[in-house]
Design a protein around this nucleic acid. Sequence first.
DNA 1: CTGTTAGCGCTTTCAG
DNA 2: CTGAAAGCGCTAACAG
Lengths: 337, 337
Amino acid sequence: MVDVTLKDLARELKISTSTVSRALKDAHDISPKTKQQVLELARKWNYQPNPHASSLRRQKSKTIAVIIPEIANNFFSLAINGIQSVAQQKGYHILIYLTHENFEQEKSIIQYLQSGRVDGILMSLSSETRDTAHLSEFKQKGLPIVFFDRVCDNYDTLKVTTDDYFSSFEATEHLIEQGCQKIAYLGLSNNLSIGINRMNGYLDALRKNNLAIKPARIIQGSKDHQKNYALIFELLKSNHRPDGIFAAVEKMAITCYQVFDELQLSIPSEIKLLSFSNLPTAPFLHPSLTTITQPAFAIGKEAASRLLSALQKNNQPLDNETIVLKSTLIKRESTKW
Amino acid sequence: MVDVTLKDLARELKISTSTVSRALKDAHDISPKTKQQVLELARKWNYQPNPHASSLRRQKSKTIAVIIPEIANNFFSLAINGIQSVAQQKGYHILIYLTHENFEQEKSIIQYLQSGRVDGILMSLSSETRDTAHLSEFKQKGLPIVFFDRVCDNYDTLKVTTDDYFSSFEATEHLIEQGCQKIAYLGLSNNLSIGINRMNGYLDALRKNNLAIKPARIIQGSKDHQKNYALIFELLKSNHRPDGIFAAVEKMAITCYQVFDELQLSIPSEIKLLSFSNLPTAPFLHPSLTTITQPAFAIGKEAASRLLSALQKNNQPLDNETIVLKSTLIKRESTKW
DNA sequence: CTGTTAGCGCTTTCAG
DNA sequence: CTGAAAGCGCTAACAG
């Protein structure tokens, strides 16, 4: 059986294709009888409208692009989950693009998307992105875009983030309360506001508690895992060895675990590690590990539902507003196991 | 600036649209001069061909669908990563669909995809899928499909899996070598061959070592987390309490951790847990935890590259063949931390 | 080497 | 309530 088209249905029912088309979308000006006939035959023949034809004609595709730095990361996969839940409900399709934290890739994906393939974009910036000129083209085309998590400050549109500054501050204070005096910071190289906010939360917590800020204890990682590993390794062997570590990025925390493993350090007795993490096991796998968990699913959901609502309201422009969702600090002070 | 079309370019250069079209695809029968002019203007005006128009005309979309049960799962997100790496290289786009382990959703997604939206499908079955009749329609339409991980046995096409039977056997034997005598099995309700294979590996290892097979120690979970939790909880409180657990599914292992946490059990001293898992922390986060890690990225890559090769060879049919990649058993016998 | 032409399958005026 | 007709933007066969 080959593809069934509107024409086929029309021919069979001896009516015009436009009538069939209208009947299928339940237009009010079609007689119930015709409607019923059309629907019946369509079901019988398993008619599936060709989305490309429809997209071409209507100049909208019921498709959105999700651009993220990576996918093998629980935060992003949970976010996609949230995005998908609303997309599915509203009948939208999701195209996935990965930048691998690479600015050039980000640029070319965005360039490509000018083509009209998608109606809107959900995006989390790559950590290498400094210059956001490539985004400005969007504005001209009027392609709506919503940023989530790693947002773009100087672009007027809707953004969905978490309370990065506050949770980092709280996290660092928690380590201090646990008796840590020499707290290291692990981040990802930071042009992005998200990194700046987290770092500031950390710094301010140290300041407030009159603890010295040692640049040697501040590590800005990159996408180069080997390098990150080496940096952390060095830190732990140096005389700036921390008694607590605040990892502002899950990836860095994982690398950190690996170093601990290599050095056969015991956690948490020797060094307390507190990290942003959305690993399902994070809160309990390693006992006494305190974690900041972001509401990843909710972020995805919020971002998607804002975007799709705007699309459905005839491309209503998005407010230049930042929606801040709260992370939770899951405290584990004692070793249960 | 509004969308630039072929027509715009043609008008500006005073040539026909077909010439422009051919120049852009570097056809051999266009004069270098024209080509160059066209290319230049296209770049200058940032021309992006409309993919819907092209898909409609060519009846192929350079897009594939990836249908998976869930995405917040390291195996699948790593697999997508692999898929994306080859898709990107070959200029294909990826649509993501989630079934949430729900047979009905799986069916309707598949039904929808008959529409010609995609050129091919990569799929991992939902755990609820028993009846595979809904897949048979694909055959008729000739939409190529490659299964990965959770494959469909009675469908003639290419499948990419891991050595589930063998690695489960090996894993169970490893627990036995560690002194476990009463080993429980945690799986997901199993209609799928993948579950059967893993279970058989477990059973055969017990048989080979003359250990009793207790149905009470075999738990088949479902997508209902609460229920799974309760089942595991019951088992640990019952007089069938195991001294070792083989979790054939990461999700069940995670639930298991939660129960341990609730019961304040110490691992591994009280109960040894060995699990299929692709969590980045799995091999070392919980010391002495032995893990089976699947080559998720490679599976995605293999599946995608087979599918895309077939597509590019003018929809060459896929062999009815199963490609088996090896999992690795990461043994951790001693507690380092 | 280039232009003309005829659609791909659908939506949407506009007439009736 | 229904049909005719135009066209979304691109491609490909054919003619020159």
